[in-house]
C-alpha cells in the first residue's frame, strides 16, 4: 500500500508535483500514467525518500520511508537500471545491497536465478545490455522480498520479448498479493499491465480509477453507419437525440447504441450497408484527458487531434 497525501514538489518557480493524493493497493498492478515530464519520477523519488517533498507526505505500508528499519524488505524499487557501478559485478552489486538490510546472502543467488542472470552474475554490470541491466535492477528490487514494488518506465527501450517478460512478471508479483506500482507514459502498455490507474499531467492528479473505467470514461462510444439513404436517416437520428458527424455515405453516430440505430432504421425502412460500433482507442482516451497537461506541446502536437480522430474511428 502506497498512500500520498497532498504531495507537492517545487523547484524554485517550477512546480513538478502539485498537491498529489492517491493510493496504490496491494494485489493489483497500479499504473502510474502521465506524459513525459508530468512528475512521475519525482513522485517516485519522493516515495523513496530521495527527494524531499515541499509539502504533503507519502507513506509506504503506513510509514514514511525513512522510518523503515530495513527499507529494502518493505519497498523494492527500480527507478533507473543504470544505477550500478559499471566495474562492479552483478553479484557484488546485490551483495552490498543485501548486506545493508540484513538480507541473507543466499537471497542474492535466488534473485539472480529469478531474473535469469545467474550465468553472468560475476560479469561487470557495465557490459550489460539494457535488458540485462533492467533485470539486474529488478533483482535488486526483489532482494528483500518486499510487499511493495515500484518500477519507473520498466519497458522503456526493451525488445518485445523483454516487454512481455516484465509484463508477466508484474502480474505474478501482484497475484502474490504485493503492491505493484509501475509508471509509464504509454497508455497502451498500461492497458495490458495495470488494473488500476493513477493518471497525472503537469504534476496534478487527473484520474484515479480502474483502467477499464478510465478508457470508457474517456472515449465516447460511437457507431459507424453506412447507408445509401443517409439524407433521410440523418434527421431521424437527430430526432432520437443522437449526434451525427461525417458526410457522404458514412457517418459516425454517438449518443445511441447500435441496437437502437438498427431498430430506428428498420422502423423507417432505411437500408443500412454498415452498422458497426467503434471502440475509442486508448491513446485517444489519453489524449482527450491529458490533452491540456502536456508540458512541452509543439505545433505538431496541436495539429494532432485532427488526425487522431480519423485514426481512432478506423480502429
Amino acid at each position: 500500500m502506497i498512500e500520498a497525501r497532498g504531495l507537492t514538489k517545487r523547484y524554485g518557480e517550477t512546480t513538478a508535483v502539485d498537491d498529489l493524493s492517491f493510493a496504490a493497493e496491494p494485489g493489483v498492478v497500479t499504473g502510474f500514467l502521465g506524459p513525459n515530464g508530468a512528475g512521475k519520477s519525482t513522485t517516485m523519488r519522493m516515495i523513496l525518500g530521495l527527494d524531499r517533498p515541499t509539502s504533503g507526505s507519502v507513506t509506504v505500508s503506513g510509514k514514511r520511508y525513512h522510518e523503515l528499519r530495513h527499507p529494502l524488505r518493505t519497498v523494492g524499487a527500480l527507478i533507473d537500471a543504470r544505477w550500478v557501478h559499471p566495474n562492479r559485478s552483478a553479484r557484488s552489486h546485490l551483495r552490498w545491497m543485501a548486506k545493508s538490510n540484513d538480507i541473507p546472502q543466499r537471497r542474492v543467488d535466488e534473485v539472480l536465478e529469478t531474473v535469469g542472470l545467474t550465468s553472468v552474475a560475476n560479469k561487470k554490470a557495465g557490459g550489460f545490455s539494457l535488458g540485462m541491466s533492467q533485470r539486474l535492477g529488478i533483482a535488486g528490487a526483489l532482494l528483500g522480498d518486499p510487499e511493495i514494488l515500484m518500477f519507473d518506465e520498466p519497458v522503456n527501450g526493451l525488445d518485445p520479448e523483454g516487454i512481455l517478460w516484465i509484463r508477466r512478471f508484474m502480474h505474478r508479483l501482484a497475484d502474490e498479493g504485493r503492491t505493484v506500482f509501475v509508471s509509464s507514459h504509454l497508455l497502451s502498455e498500461m492497458a495490458l499491465t495495470a488494473q488500476d490507474l493513477v493518471v497525472i499531467g503537469k504534476g496534478e492528479l487527473i484520474a484515479q480509477c480502474s483502467t477499464a473505467d478510465f478508457v470508457s470514461r474517456a472515449t465516447e462510444d460511437a457507431v459507424k453507419v453506412r447507408s445509401p439513404q443517409l439524407a433521410e436517416f440523418r434527421p431521424v437520428l437527430a430526432d432520437a437525440g443522437a449526434s451525427v458527424r461525417g458526410e457522404d455515405g458514412a457517418v459516425l453516430v454517438s449518443g445511441l447504441d447500435s441496437d437502437a440505430i438498427g431498430d430506428l432504421a428498420a422502423r423507417h425502412q432505411v437500408v443500412l450497408h454498415e452498422l458497426s460500433p467503434q471502440q475509442g482507442s486508448l491513446e485517444q482516451a489519453f489524449m482527450q484527458i491529458t490533452g491540456d497537461s502536456v508540458e512541452y506541446a509543439s505545433d505538431f502536437d496541436d495539429r494532432a487531434p485532427a488526425t487522431t480522430e480519423l485514426a481512432g474511428t478506423a480502429s
Binding site: G49, L50, L72, A77, R82, V84, H85, M97, S100
Partner: peptide, 16 residues
Amino acid sequence: TEYRFGTIRTTFQAIP
C-alpha cells in the same frame, strides 16, 4: 563515482 553512477541513490534507498 557513487554520484556519477547513481549508486548513491541505491545507497540512500537501502540506508535512508
